[in-house]
Write a protein that binds this DNA or RNA. Structure first.
Lengths: 273, 273
DNA sequence: GTCGTTATCGATCGACGATCGAGAACGACC
DNA sequence: GGTCGTTCTCGATCGTCGATCGATAACGAC
């Protein structure tokens, strides 16, 4: 449905307008002959054809048997560069077109929608995650290490995580990560239903943690601190008592603490059912 | 800074334009006398003055000693109604103005920015949460019950949670909930630093869980299921094996599972470290 | 050559958050 | 009771966003 109503160039109409030159307006100004844009030849690595695994609703780039113009991959990479350097809010279709020396209309031939692009960018980043061979005997250590790697990876790409919050993992690289996790946990003998639940919980916690570490809307930190200190002590005694601990610990430490709780909880759950 | 550059009606200029009638354009059309809009008298409950606790950067409604026009409270309530009935995306300043029989410019006199409004709406909802007297002896039970209540409360208001994801709790009602939690945990003898970390983790997990239960972007569920079943078995054996368990369990059960893990983990942490 | 497909691109749409300036409504004060 | 400054309303408008349209160029197949 998504692309079924494609823009079909009306060949007949085009031919007609060409065949009736009398209608053409007098030459107001000669068409500005753009100097051929000397594109730095983006040296694409030789395309190794390998069975593509990706959601069927992602717009296919119409099997390109033509020149090498505006590959979907180049779009995704350019988008990721913008996100990394200027943040997610700077990623607009216009800005992306600018980075690729084209306009927004051109991009929409390739990407379907901005949400779709966002999922592709997210999945592209997931491809950067290195995964060791699953070793179920060390499942706790492996899961923990993977979670930290993923946490840092997402942080490295600024607020990219905002792209994917309520989404199921459907991209090929995201699926690869999911498969690895499930392999480790199932290999460790954890019941399928528990694996399913636990994976759910972990991905939520991870996304939310990254989000909290990156999002920085709201008033500046010092203003918040001052406000907190000004709270009436009779109504917020415990919050005030907790203030000194509020600034202690890096984001990563706090993330690690929660991760530790989840794994301890899982171990306890498995032991005591 | 936020409101320091307020629109200051330039009294001098106003007086000048009044004092030089010659400049007035000829009567082009008589000012359309709007029939007095018979506002259904929004019966506000008698305002009980009580010490206000709220962030200093929230725009104050300029101590209103005038008629009762467009209170900030009425705006927040109308906004919440829109969110509840039509979702967060329907909450635009124009739509809100429509609901209040006014325009967007009027609203901006009261609210400063849409983000500010969003925080107020979120905090308003937090005011709906009922909290029992803290009973530290039953801290695990109390925290669990509170988390479930809050989870259901946020779900009841659709995708409202998207308003507050990366934010610190700064509204008065949100602070009240935070104070309650800290009171319970500290009362149970849990060290301050642990309380601080745990509160962090809990709020992340809660927000992320609500978010996942509400957000429904992406392709329709059945399409995703079909896609998952079509994955190549040699590359995704474990994901495929897990499929039967993927649809089992309500959102609330899954939320409860993670909540249980966190509490078990905390208990284990306190006991063994 | 011609023809249909694939792709590019300027112009444009409707909606968004936010701002401006004119002026109306109101309390305070003389 | 007039006048004055403050408080609030409101239509008009700005710049930007995601997305679409129609014209047209580039290309492969026949």
């Amino acid at each position: 449905m998504a692309r079924s109503t494609d823009k079909k160039p009306d060949g007949a109409a085009a031919a007609e307008s060409l065949g009736s030159p009398g209608v053409e307006p007098p030459v107001v100004e000669p068409p500005v002959v753009e100097p051929p844009v000397v594109e730095p030849p983006v040296v694409e690595p030789p395309v190794v054809e390998m069975p593509v695994v990706e959601p069927p609703w992602w717009t296919k780039p119409k099997p390109s048997r033509r020149r090498q113009p505006m590959s979907r991959d180049a779009i995704v990479k350019a988008a990721l560069t913008i996100v990394d350097e200027e943040g997610i809010d700077a990623l607009t279709v216009r800005r992306l077109g600018e980075a690729l020396n084209t306009g927004s209309a051109t991009l929409y031939w390739h990407i379907g929608s901005k949400n779709e692009l966002a999922e592709m960018v997210y999945d592209h980043v997931m491809g950067e995650l290195e995964l060791p061979e699953p070793d179920p005997a060390n499942w706790q250590h492996q899961i923990k290490a993977m979670a930290f790697d993923l946490y840092r990876l997402l942080l490295r790409h600024k607020d990219l995580v905002r792209l994917s919050l309520g989404h199921l993992p459907t991209g090929p690289n995201t699926l690869r990560v999911a498969e690895w996790n499930v392999a480790v946990l199932r290999g460790a003998g954890i019941p399928d239903q528990v694996v399913s639940y636990f994976g759910d919980v972990m991905s939520r916690y991870l996304d939310a943690s990254v989000l909290e570490s990156t999002t920085q809307t709201g008033p500046p930190m010092e203003m918040v601190g001052e406000y907190f200190r000004s709270l009436p002590p009779d109504r917020f005694p415990n919050m005030l008592a907790l203030m000194p601990t509020a600034m202690v610990g890096s984001d990563e430490e706090r993330f690690g603490f929660g991760l530790d709780l989840l794994l301890r909880g899982l171990a306890d759950y498995l032991a005591n059912s």
